[in-house]
Design a protein around this nucleic acid. Sequence first.
DNA 1: AAAGTGACGCATT
DNA 2: TAATGCGCCACTT
Length: 105
Amino acid sequence: MTRYLRQRILRCVSEIPPGQVATFGDIAKKVGISDARIVAQAISGNKDPKIPCHRLVKFNGSLNTNYSKGDWRDDKILLEQEGVKFIDDKTVDLKNFRKNFNSFP
DNA sequence: AAAGTGACGCATT
DNA sequence: TAATGCGCCACTT
C-alpha cells in the first residue's frame, strides 16, 4: 500500500486544476489518511515535473519554502499566472481558489 | 526492529 | 496578530 499511497497522493495533486489550490490536509483526506505530513513527504523529492506541487499550500493558504524550486516566489509566480489571487505576499486566497475536494471515494 | 524525521494542522498562549 | 507547542502517521535509515 505504501508506494501506492504515494502514487495516489501524487495523482491527487496532479488532478488539481490550474487556477486552484489545495492544502496538504485536503489531499490527505482525499486519499483517506489523516496526516498532512504524509502528503508532504510523498511529494518531497519527487522529480516528476507533471506534479504541480506549487498548487499545494499550507492549511491557511500561506506558501511554504519550496524545496524543489527554491522558494515560494516561484510558486507565487506560477499561481498568479494561473489566475490565483493573493491576499498577501505569500498567502493565496484560499476562500475563493481552494479546490472542492469531496470526501474520498 | 527501533528511532528519527518531516514541503503539516490546529489549539492555545 | 504572531509565536509556540503538541499531535499525528507513514517513510527512511
